[in-house]
Amino acid sequence: MIYIKLLISIGVFGLSGYYGFRASKRYAEREAYFSELVLFCGYLAGEIGFVRAPLAVIFEKYSASFKSLLAAQLQAAGEIAQSDGVLDAETLRAVLPRGVLKSAEYDNAVAFLGVLGKSDAENQLESAAGFKDAFSEYHKQALADKKKYAPLYWKLGLLGAGAVVLLLF
């Protein structure tokens, strides 16, 4: 009987710990996303302002080098840019994964990617700079949330497991 309780306890700790980890990981993913998005806005100054690479090339390059949700979004946008589709907000909304983003954050990301390629270089860079400011604010908030809530969910997961185990015994 004691062995069964031990097994169940290990299982409960494991499961609870896993859910705690998943919940805390969302904050880390959101922070990583905005960190890379702010970087991407900065890289555009060179890609659009100097190299003048087409969007499909830019999207392919950075979808390979980024690690967060942004990589998947750039890959989806790149597939539209290479296809016969039109790269506008409506088409992007249908294909871009939302992941851990809040509604307003996702809308802004779609709007940003939808604006790319639609005007001359100077205008593009002005738009990118404006969005970069907004994404920097989101990044600050995401970083604060990560520091505050990520460890909390870990602890909640372990505490919850402890409580169940106590009840069992």
Binding site: I48, R52, A53, P54, L55, A56, A81, D84, V86, L87, G117, K118, S119, D120, A121, N123, Q124
Partner: peptide
Amino acid sequence: ESVILRASEHSLYVFNEQI
């Protein structure tokens, strides 16, 4: 507009000198 965007590979800034 769609014709021009597709002709410019969705990147008007690349072709702005021509445009």
